[in-house]
Computed example of a mutant assay.
Amino acid sequence: MFVNSRWPLLLPSVVLFFLVSMVVLSVSVGPMAISFVDSIKALLVDWVNWQSPVSTQHAIVVSHIRLPRTLLCLSIGAILGLTGAVMQGVFRNPLADPGIMGVSSGAALGAGLGIVIFADVMIDLPNWLQLSTVSFFAFTFALAVCLLVYKLGTSSQGSSVVVMLLAGVAISAIAGAGMGMLTYIADDQSLRDLSLWQMGSMAGSNWLSITLSSITLVFLLVVFMSSAQALNILLLGDAEAVHLGIDIVRLKRRLIFCCAIGLGITVSIAGMIGFIGLIIPHLVRLLVGPNHQRVLPLSAMLGALLLLLADILARTVMAPSELPVGIITALLGSPFFIIVLLQQRSKLGI
């Protein structure tokens, strides 16, 4: 209802304002009681060598725990929102999600192998390759699943979205069986690590993971924004896109592969965080319309905002205990998914 008004021009500024506000709030809240003023002082002491009477403990908590966690939330949430918008555009379906191809399930299986079986094998790898044992296996399996799904869904006649979806369902079932087996053979510590990872968390943030996710985000923004106009044409249908000069096979291959890279990175770093890629793009299209030149950057911004809000809730709702952020996003996203599903059902007259 806002598409023909000034709202599309005003929305980025509004989102940016709330994003900055959430960043400030994020470095100020947590299990340890640190006032807003002391949080700002701690950042100034650490980053600009500003002299202020703030305790060393507070400075360490704010600068080395809360700030990295906040920055990781921004990059991971932006990637999830961005890839969700692209997947919905490629599949021309508001119910599409980056995990629809089974990539997230494959990443989960890889992470499970890293946690339960190969933890000792990966210890001697160099730091540039060893983001962590879990990260390496999750990312590798995500890429492998992406290539497999695309190979199964592509032939000399072109690519079939339906076959890709069915392949994703089959791979998710296989990965689920593998995860069940790993859960069965895991020892107590590995089982706890595996369970916490499956629920998603920002607790393991560090500067290496922030750097990797930030580079991935910039790469995806460049690739996806350069394909925004082609995505707009693709919304008309495959046949119309071909007549307008779009190589849809190459376009879908590039976009799906890049989405898998983004999803593999997020899963490997933060675990399983669902529904952001479903909720955010749908809301953005309701507010500003289907133009991907607006949808993509706004989806990235709102994805970062939603994950940051979910992480703040995860840290504060049951403080000093911490909820996995994946539980918060699932609680927020599940009702929204049901609403969208009912809307699609009514459109189809079912």
Rank of each mutant, 00 (worst) to 15 (best):
C73G: 14
A111G: 15
L95W: 10
P31F: 08
Q51M: 08
L43I: 10
P68N: 09
G112R: 01
M122I: 11
L44D: 00
V29F: 14
I123L: 15
V86R: 03
I117D: 00
A78Y: 02
R69G: 14
F118M: 07
P94I: 04
L109M: 14
D46A: 14
G81A: 09
A85I: 00
L113M: 15
A96Q: 06
P31V: 01
G30I: 00
G84S: 05
K41S: 08
M101R: 09
P94H: 08
F91M: 04
A96Y: 05
S104K: 00
S105R: 07
T56R: 09
V27W: 04
V27Q: 09
H58Q: 07
T83A: 08
V29W: 12
R66T: 09
V121S: 10
G99P: 14
M122L: 15
W47H: 10
V90S: 10
M122D: 15
T56G: 14
P31Q: 03
V48K: 04
D38V: 02
G30N: 01
I34Y: 12
I40K: 03
S26P: 12
H64A: 13
F118G: 11
L95M: 13
G81W: 11
A59R: 10
I79D: 00
A107L: 09
W50G: 12
I76D: 01
G112H: 11
W47P: 08
S75T: 07
W50C: 11
L71T: 03
I117S: 05
V86K: 04
A33N: 13
K41A: 13
A111P: 15
A96F: 06
D97A: 08
S104P: 07
V48A: 15
A111W: 13
M32I: 07
L74P: 13
V48M: 09
A33L: 04
V27P: 12
I34G: 13
F91R: 04
A33C: 01
V103C: 04
L67E: 07
I60K: 00
